[in-house]
């Protein structure tokens, strides 16, 4: 089946330019197409007309790199659960619908161009402590440390974060707690990460605050919109770890 749509897209030439919404009609879009393929079709039309295509981040187009980041009809990654934008398909839209497409909005995520934002802030948070402080070589045998399966699985749940920023985009406070807590949790749950758990959580939270992310008010919107279903129990775990670190 093919549908016609009106796209209301945020256009902004660069970080300092003022932006505005521009309407683009697109026609004859297959409902089997992915959302980004629909954007490709629009861009091909724009280029053919000599206009500048809409800039948006995307890369692997299979839901794992975390690059794609469109705020579609009021929801990060659009009107479907547990997916990234690139996994959204046009069958989720109705013929004649107007689709509002915006970039992530948060102070620490400035718009670079159109729908592209700068998420370097996430890297900075990881650099503040999102690792186990070991060097290459000289590590024990992989089976030297048995790890309870339940904990390994919980760590994997947390580690599946793709760093897309949907949690920040969805949060009314633009808080990065889900992202930060996922990394803190992964390492807290594993003996390898326990060693420096206290320093890690303090440094990562401090960096998060410094970068200007908002405070968590437990709205749980992050969990609802996370493409990888990262749980807010990670936030609680981080709060707990943080308290332990502060009082010890």
């Amino acid at each position: 089946m093919n549908i016609n749509l009106t796209l209301k897209i945020w256009r902004q030439a660069n970080q300092d330019a003022p932006g505005k919404f521009v309407d683009y009609p697109v026609e004859n879009i297959s409902t089997e197409a992915s959302f980004l393929e629909m954007m490709d079709i629009l861009n091909e039309e724009l280029v053919a007309k000599g206009e500048e295509p809409v800039a948006f981040d995307h890369d692997c187009r299979e839901g794992i790199c975390g690059m794609c980041s469109l705020f579609i009809n009021g929801r990060p990654h659009g009107p479907d659960d547990s997916i990234t934008t690139c996994q959204l398909h046009m069958r989720k839209f109705k013929d004649g619908e107007t689709i509002v497409i915006e970039p992530w909005r948060a102070k620490p995520f400035p718009v670079i161009k159109d729908l592209m934002v700068d998420r370097t802030a996430f890297d900075e948070i990881i650099q503040a402590g999102g690792y186990v402080n070991i060097n290459t070589g000289g590590v024990p045998d992989a089976n030297a440390i048995p790890i309870r399966k339940e904990n390994a699985d919980l760590a994997m749940d947390a580690a599946s974060c793709i760093g897309c920023g949907a949690c920040v985009a969805a949060c009314k406070n633009a808080s990065a707690m889900l992202f930060v807590s996922a990394k803190v949790s992964q390492f807290t749950l594993l003996p390898q990460g326990k060693v420096e758990a206290h320093e890690r959580v303090e440094n990562m939270v401090a960096k998060m605050d410094e970068l200007g992310f908002g405070n968590c008010t437990n709205t749980y919107a992050c969990e609802a919109e996370c493409p990888k279903d990262i749980s807010i129990t990670n936030i609680a775990r981080m709060n707990r770890e943080f308290l332990c670190a502060k009082v010890s």
């Binding site: 509002v100 915006e102 102070k107 908002g214 749980y220 609802a224």
Partner: peptide, 14 residues
Amino acid sequence: ARPKGYKKKAASEK
């Protein structure tokens, strides 16, 4: 933390 808001924002809050 969010100087510019969204034009359209769904209620994702649980």
